[in-house]
């Protein structure tokens, strides 16, 4: 159990997927303008990433490896993820309308969120077993949600301050992200 806790802390704080590994930055800057959208996106990513991490692991070890097709990993994974996202969207729409209301518009965006494909590839490259891969995917997604919500909290305050004209919008967002990333660098050496 101890190693799983270490893995969680490492994935959430030390090697934060957004701030240190640089995966999933487009939604990070795109949907972090208000707290509500950031929370919605964070939840949707936690849900899809954990599922995708598990399924891509199974596809890799039970389909691609036996058939000796590992060089097609990129195509196979992206198709699995795209199908999964579509499928999750339909299932949630039928079974849990309130959840769909909350997550609906973020789900299609997740297909092109490189965090999902990135974590699936890291799981394979690092040689994780199934349980570790699921834990790692879940923890990475939590790290994503944490960074996104932190960022949204700060960006909401931008409405109240005066920002030099040239820095408005994405530029100040990037510099804020840099400062959050600097704060997260303080966790290096924790694990």
């Amino acid at each position: 159990m101890g190693e799983f806790i270490l893995l969680m802390i490492s994935a959430i704080l030390v090697n934060n997927i957004l701030l240190i590994r640089f995966l999933g930055n487009c939604p990070f800057l795109g949907v972090s303008k208000s707290m509500d959208t950031a929370t919605g996106m964070g939840m949707a990513v936690i849900f899809v990433l954990t599922l995708a991490g598990m399924i891509t692991w199974l596809v890799h070890h039970y389909i691609l490896v036996p058939l000796d097709l590992t060089y097609l990993r990129t195509i196979a994974f992206i198709l699995v993820i795209a199908t999964l996202v579509q499928f999750v969207e339909m299932v949630i729409q039928k079974t849990a309308p309130p959840l769909y209301e909350a997550l609906g518009i973020y789900l299609p965006l997740i297909t092109t969120n490189c965090a999902v494909l990135g974590v699936a590839i890291i799981n394979i490259d690092e040689g994780y077993d199934l349980i570790t891969a699921i834990f790692f995917s879940f923890a990475s997604a939590c790290g994503f949600a944490l960074a996104l919500v932190l960022m949204a909290g700060i960006r909401e305050r931008f409405a109240l301050v005066e920002i030099p004209k040239a820095f408005e919008g994405t530029a100040i967002g990037l510099i804020t992200a840099g400062l959050i990333s600097l704060a997260f660098s303080g966790f290096i050496g924790l694990v």
């Binding site: 994405t170 992200a177 840099g178 990333s181």
Partner: peptide
């Protein structure tokens, strides 16, 4: 060269282009 530097460098470059 560290991750925070990447964000800050891109942000400043973007602000420069806006200017």
């Amino acid at each position: 060269l560290k991750p925070p530097g990447a964000f800050v460098a891109l942000g400043i470059l973007l602000a420069f282009m806006n200017l």
